[in-house]
């Protein structure tokens, strides 16, 4: 059984890291990062079999690909607390000569990152490719990917979805962060995508809907359920309803905090709402 309380303690520390990283260089994307914190903590601390000594090929391991690379703060914090690199390196985020680039990349050799992402829409294809290679290698582990909901406006996502379904890439779990926000406003205002459930079902995915994507118990249960649905001839899609900015009250539910850093006062408020549980970097 998952130790939910312990996972939630990690979530609190990751949220502190996110706002501190973004505040420290006055740039980055706190909103989506905060909204996906439960998901990434659950994945790395409960669900995936993975090895923080890091080998690019990841044979015998579950793999994760972050397609919406702009939520790098949450990814970096979770990787650091998982042991891929020292948490002190989080202080270098977005600074010159850092391995923690604005968007994740393999280019500077940061352990835990297997592909560059940032230009949206490419990660589902990458994940499908890695999943196919796992099959070729008789490797029965699972490939996970995370996508923003606004990112689904990119056509390549649907090319990848069509492929994964047609070719029965059933060792693939693609999660969509449904926070309903993108840079210019709500996803409904910017480009209404209609029913994503209907779309993914029509594309041939096994679809799970998680209404409380910021509830750790629900997220862990959903990921366990998704795992149990792999290997049955269909790729799996989790539609994860989250709240942009979750955990910091003044950021919650608004697209305004997609790519804006808090000032000193705002940081203090955010930190007061998220306890230091594992020690600040």
């Amino acid at each position: 059984m998952a130790n939910i309380q312990k996972l939630e303690q990690t979530v609190s520390q990751v949220r502190r890291d996110i706002v501190r990283m973004v505040h420290a260089n006055n740039s980055g994307h706190p909103g989506g990062s905060l909204g996906c914190t439960e998901f990434l903590v659950a994945l790395y601390f409960e669900i995936m079999k993975h090895d923080s000594s890091f080998n690019m090929d990841g044979k015998g391991e579950d793999l994760f690909f972050l397609s919406n690379g702009h939520i790098s703060p949450v990814f970096y914090s979770v990787l650091a607390h998982s042991g891929y690199f020292n948490v002190s390196e989080l202080a270098t985020f977005r600074k010159i000569d850092s391995r923690l680039q604005g968007h994740p990349t393999t280019h500077e050799g940061l352990p835990g990152v297997r592909i560059a992402s940032g230009s949206l829409g490419q990660g589902m294809s990458v994940a499908a490719g890695a999943a196919v290679t796992k099959k070729l290698n008789d490797d029965d582990r699972i490939v996970y990917s995370l996508h923003g909901d606004g990112e689904l406006q990119e056509g390549q996502i649907w090319e990848a979805a069509m492929y994964a379904s047609a070719k029965k890439v059933d060792n693939l779990i693609c999660t969509i962060d449904l926070n309903g926000q993108q840079i210019d406003g709500s996803t409904d205002e910017v480009l209404n995508m209609g029913s994503l459930e209907a779309k993914f079902l029509a594309f041939g995915f096994d679809v799970l809907i998680v209404k409380e994507g910021n509830n750790m118990t629900k997220v862990v249960a959903a990921l366990e359920e998704a795992k149990s649905r792999t290997g049955k001839g269909k790729p799996v899609c989790i539609l994860l309803h989250t709240e942009m900015g979750n955990g910091v009250d003044y950021m919650m539910g608004s697209h305004k905090w997609h790519g804006v850093a808090p000032n000193d006062e705002e940081l203090a408020v955010a930190l007061a709402q998220n306890k230091e549980t594992l020690g600040d970097y």
């Binding site: 690909f65 592909i115 294809s125 990458v126 499908a128 490719g129 196919v132 070729l136 290698n137 390549q156």
Partner: peptide, 25 residues
């Protein structure tokens, strides 16, 4: 078994190929 027909979706093909290298292909 080592040939992958991706259909008319070159963008998917390129990113998929990148993913397929992970694991040594």
């Amino acid at each position: 078994e080592r040939f992958f027909q991706v259909g008319i979706s070159e963008a998917n093909m390129m990113s998929m190929a990148a993913g397929m290298t992970i694991g040594g292909k």
